[in-house]
């Protein structure tokens, strides 16, 4: 099989930019948590966390430059986990 060493080089500047984005999002999480959205608080926190993971995944972990298969599996694993969570909660929610 041909050598598919990923030749994409991320510049320093770009990495720092992503870092700043993530920093802002972290501060945002803390800031937002001060408000009481009732049951929505967790959802908001998790949405922000997921945006952060998305940034980390695509840029720092280079998923953006990987092939379709790898991207699909990463998403697949996330979906699998969510599905298990939902099926598990069919027990707790209706108890």
């Amino acid at each position: 099989m041909s050598d598919t060493q990923n030749t994409h080089v991320t510049g320093y500047r770009f990495s720092i930019l992503i870092w700043v984005d993530l920093l802002i999002l972290t501060l945002l999480t803390i800031e937002v948590a001060q408000f009481d959205f009732q049951s929505l608080t967790v959802i908001v926190a998790l949405v922000i966390a997921t945006i952060k993971s998305y940034l980390v995944g695509t840029h720092f972990m280079h998923l953006k430059f990987e092939n379709k298969f790898l991207k699909a599996v990463v998403i697949g694993v996330g979906v699998l986990f969510l599905a298990v969570l939902i099926v598990l909660f069919s027990d707790y929610l209706f108890y």
Partner: peptide, 14 residues
């Protein structure tokens, strides 16, 4: 992956 609960029908699931 999603059928595990069939081992627990008598364990007091909902």
């Amino acid at each position: 992956y999603f059928v595990w609960g069939h081992h627990m029908f008598t364990s007091g699931m909902s």
